[in-house]
């Protein structure tokens, strides 16, 4: 029976949507940041697979139809960006300098902690692309000779952080200007953080989308400076 369920194309899709809906329900009911729909959905999916002993491949057969939309959806982030074009022009210098500072600090922080943890060159370059969107990160990790699967893990942990507590971190650091909030969340936690920024407001969402693209490209350039440090 379980095999039949796991083998169905709709199992992976249904489990993913169901887990997400449960997260939305819990968040509405308890309003606790831990009940982040994305986090709840991931927990529900992983525990269901482990409990029923269904392998990832069976789940992915259906669920991959959901993530297939990732590229078109990311393309559409150009829409909020276009809607905020005036704001973008007005704050161009602040936005670009802000993103550049984030990219350099990211490289520096990862280098410092890699030395602290005594990581090898391969482990270090694996983590270098962790703040940028998965698609650029995978390419960069491959280029630098890192472990791609782990780069993806680090990117996802980073993105989850932004998606769950991105707004809280802005409060803690006293980042109140909507443009600065969006740039901070997008530069540090890529597209996953951006979907949180979208909830905060249109300006935050648009600036975050822009930052994902710009930070991604700047990181590719910065990685050349940082790669041989260890």
């Amino acid at each position: 029976m379980i095999e039949a369920i796991g083998g169905s194309l709709f199992f992976g899709i249904g489990l993913t949507l169901g887990g997400f809906l449960l997260g939305v329900f819990l968040k509405k009911k308890f309003n606790l940041f831990l009940f982040n729909p994305l986090l709840v959905a991931i927990a529900v999916c992983i525990s269901t697979l482990l409990l029923l002993d269904i392998d990832y491949e069976s789940y992915s057969k259906g669920a991959s139809h959901i993530s297939m939309l990732l590229t078109p959806a990311t393309v559409c982030l150009a829409i909020p960006l276009y809607e905020q074009l005036q704001l973008l022009k007005k704050n161009a210098t602040a936005i670009l300098v802000g993103i550049a500072s984030g990219v350099v600090v990211s490289g520096g922080a990862i280098l410092a902690m890699a030395i602290l943890f005594g990581l090898t060159h391969t482990q270090y370059v694996t983590l270098l692309p962790k703040s940028i969107t998965t698609a650029i990160g995978i390419g960069l990790s491959a280029e630098l000779g890192g472990y791609i699967a782990i780069t993806v893990a680090a990117i996802i942990i980073t993105g989850l952080t932004g998606n769950i507590i991105g707004d809280k971190l802005c409060d803690i650091f006293g980042i109140t200007h909507p443009v600065a909030k969006g740039v901070a969340i997008g530069t540090s936690t890529h597209v996953m953080g951006t979907s949180k920024a979208m909830e905060l407001g249109e300006v935050e969402g648009a600036m975050s989308s822009l930052s994902v693209a710009v930070a991604g490209l700047m990181t590719v350039a910065a990685a050349l400076l940082f790669e041989n440090a260890i």
Binding site: F20, L38, A41, S67, L70, A73
Partner: peptide
């Protein structure tokens, strides 16, 4: 968009 991140994370 957020739902699309579930499968790669799993």
């Amino acid at each position: 968009l957020p739902i699309m991140f579930v499968p790669p994370t799993v």
